[in-house]
Structure formats: structure tokens, C-alpha cells
């Protein structure tokens, strides 16, 4: 398994060069300090302190139930919808506390988009799926602008050429990979700064997965991306930073190549070499 990972890193030689550039211009987009999450009595996340860099991909890895998805859902306050969930600690977007009373959660989620594990297009047309966000936020004033925005979003998600002749078809008629790209286009259409992805490829076949990974790499130019993944190869392929979670603790974080080639913690070592997982 670690051979594959090493291959993946070698296969992306420009990663090192761009990392060097990033190191100079590195800017923190989101900071989280001592984040704790409780589900009723269960302490799901303990004292997580992590910085998420702007315009780079941060991968969250770890065995099932380690809290990585919980952490991701704190970043756009999706946990608010769960009655028994309690979040403490400080989470900031561009220095602004996102759990502050003055922050409108609707506006927050417009700046921090989310793509889910299972593709979940609305049972509406492809066009309406993408247009939904701009419509509810009132981003466009007339139909021509909306058409343009939908086209742009679909193009950015690499889906436009495949669906341009059937924008009226239901979004659910697409294949799994196309549905997931539609969901990405839908998130992009609102104009977010950060995109959270919760295991976006876990229900896709390898070809569709490769397509999404390429897309993530392209999107990195314009967006800050946080991705939860079960696949270490995927983390190695798409991310610049990696954070390893285990049983609710953030064990280790750092540059992706360093995590995979020279982990400091033996739990990380154990996980990436497949001793547990």
C-alpha cells in the first residue's frame, strides 16, 4: 500500500515545487483552536487545533469514527442541525469567529460550501440544481446572468460539455460521478471561498474518482478545499496538507509528503502502513 502512496507522490512532481511557493505565500484561511465536540455524553472530538491554508487542499484522514467528518461539519456549522451536538472552542474564517452570535449561518454556508459523501442532487433538473443556490441568495438579477452563472459553474466542475444539451433532465438521471460533479458545480455556483468535501469519492468507481481528483486539483487554484477521505492514496494524490485523526484526537498534521514518508507519530505510521484502519 505505501508503495502506491509513494508512487502517487512521485507521480506528482510539481507538488514539491508548488509547496515551496506556497510556503512563501502561505496564508491561513481558517483557524480552529481547541475544538471539542460532544454528542450528548460522547466526547467525539478533543482539543483539535488546526490551521487550514488558503488555496490548498487539506486532507483529513483516519480510521472510521475518528472524528474527521465531525470536524469537517464544524467548519460550516452543519452540526447545528443535530440537536444533541455541542461544539466548543474557537473556529475562525478570515479571523471572524464563525460561532459568534452575529454570524448568520445562512451567509456562512454561502461562503463555505459542502459536498457530501453520497451524491445528493435535488430531484430537479440539472439547471435548477445549479441555479438553486444563486436563486435563494439572490445572486443574479436576470435570466441571462443566471444562465451564464450556471454554465460557468458547470464548466468549473468539468461537467458542462457532458450535459449542455440536456440541462432540463433531472439531476438524478446522471451517473454517480456526474452527479457528484453536479453537486460540486452546485456548491461553486454560490461563490464560496472554502469547499468542504466529505469523502466525495467513496461511492464512485475508480474512473469517476480520478475525474473528481483532477477536478479538486484544478479547483485548488481558486478555492480552499478541505477533504475527508478514507483512501490514503487519494490524500497523497490531491492534498498539500494532511491531518491524521484517531479516536477524536488530532494526532499529527503537516505537509502531505512528510506525513506519508516520514510520519512523526507511530500511530500515523501504523495507520498509513495499514497496521490498523
Amino acid at each position: 500500500m505505501d508503495e502506491n502512496i509513494a508512487e502517487a507522490i512521485v507521480a506528482a512532481p510539481e507538488a514539491d515545487a508548488s509547496d515551496a511557493v506556497d510556503a512563501e505565500t502561505f496564508r491561513v484561511k481558517m483557524t480552529t483552536r481547541n475544538v471539542n465536540v460532544h454528542y450528548a455524553e460522547k466526547h467525539a472530538l478533543r482539543d483539535v487545533t488546526l490551521d487550514i491554508g488558503e488555496r490548498e487542499v487539506t486532507a483529513l484522514i483516519g480510521p472510521s469514527g475518528c472524528g474527521k467528518s465531525t470536524y469537517l461539519r464544524c467548519l460550516n456549522r452543519m452540526n447545528d442541525t443535530i440537536d444533541i451536538c455541542r461544539v466548543t472552542g474557537r473556529l475562525e474564517l478570515d479571523g471572524q469567529d464563525i460561532y459568534d452570535d452575529s454570524v448568520d449561518v445562512v451567509q456562512l454556508r454561502a461562503s463555505i460550501g459542502m459536498v457530501f459523501q453520497k451524491p445528493n442532487p435535488f430531484p430537479k433538473s440539472i439547471f435548477d440544481n445549479v441555479a438553486y443556490g444563486p436563486r435563494i441568495h439572490g445572486l443574479v438579477s436576470d435570466r441571462a446572468d443566471l444562465d451564464q452563472l450556471v454554465e460557468q459553474s458547470l464548466r468549473k466542475a468539468g461537467l458542462f460539455d457532458e450535459v449542455k444539451d440536456r440541462l432540463g433532465d433531472p439531476g438524478t438521471s446522471l451517473s454517480g460521478g456526474q452527479q457528484q460533479r453536479l453537486c460540486i458545480a452546485r456548491a461553486i455556483a454560490v461563490g464560496p471561498e472554502v469547499i468542504l468535501m466529505d469523502e466525495p469519492c467513496s461511492s464512485l468507481d475508480p474512473i469517476a474518482t480520478a475525474r473528481i481528483e483532477e477536478l479538486i486539483d484544478e479547483l485548488r487554484q481558486n478555492y480552499t478545499i478541505v477533504i475527508v477521505t478514507h483512501s490514503m492514496q487519494q490524500a497523497a494524490r490531491v492534498s498539500q496538507k494532511t491531518a491524521f485523526f484517531h479516536l477524536g484526537d488530532l494526532i499529527e498534521q503537516g505537509e502531505t509528503p512528510q506525513i506519508f514518508t516520514n510520519p512523526r507519530d507511530e500511530k500515523t505510521q501504523g495507520y498509513i502502513t495499514g497496521r490498523f484502519g
Binding site: 442541525t81 454556508r109 457530501f116 452546485r186
Partner: peptide, 11 residues
């Protein structure tokens, strides 16, 4: 998933 999708878009 439908609720989450809409909430995630800021509805």
C-alpha cells in the same frame, strides 16, 4: 441527504 444538500448551500 436532500435536507443536508439544501442546508449546505445556505438555505
Amino acid at each position: 441527504s436532500v435536507r443536508e444538500a439544501a442546508l449546505g448551500l445556505g438555505a
